[in-house]
Design a protein around this nucleic acid. Structure first.
Length: 134
DNA sequence: GCCAACGTTGGC
DNA sequence: GCCAACGTTGGC
């Protein structure tokens, strides 16, 4: 099983929206690198849900609830989406500031490629962030 | 609200 | 196929 981190601006789709709705289409990705990662996702893979711009912190965990499929909001047919299902909140959100200060997390794409909206997370990085949330 | 970073588009 | 122009993202 793989781990990922997905970003959303709370003004368009927030963690509390996700908690309420439980399961949602993760559509609107218009970046090839992000799309390629979406494509690699497997059913049951876990993802951190990160609030960009407002909050700048990891709020909780969701899981991949469908494999890669057509994005109905994309008329070009180049992009796609998966479904994301609510799993659990973090006990305490982990902020971008904390992540930047943590030596083991310096390779996280969140830091190196701030514009990428879907990125892989290693087992070690996952465990580290979970530990920080306790 | 600004601006740096960077991905995408389109003209050549 | 290159690269300048442009648009968008997201941290500050």
């Amino acid at each position: 099983m793989a781990y990922w981190l997905i970003k959303s601006e709370p003004s368009s789709w927030s963690w509390s929206d996700q908690v309420k709705k439980k399961i949602t289409h993760w559509d609107g990705v218009r970046n090839f690198q992000a799309r390629n990662y979406l494509k690699q996702m497997k059913l049951g893979d876990l993802c951190f849900f990160y609030h960009s711009v407002v909050g700048k912190q990891i709020m909780g965990v969701v899981k991949v609830a469908s494999s890669f499929k057509d994005d109905p909001t994309d008329s070009t047919g180049k992009f796609g989406m998966v479904d994301m299902e609510y799993v659990s909140p973090l006990e305490n959100p982990v902020t971008l500031e904390q992540i930047k200060k943590t030596a083991q997390l310096q390779d996280l794409s969140l830091i190196k490629q701030s514009r990428l909206s879907v990125m892989p997370v290693t087992n070690a990085q996952w465990d580290c962030i979970i530990a920080m949330s306790k």
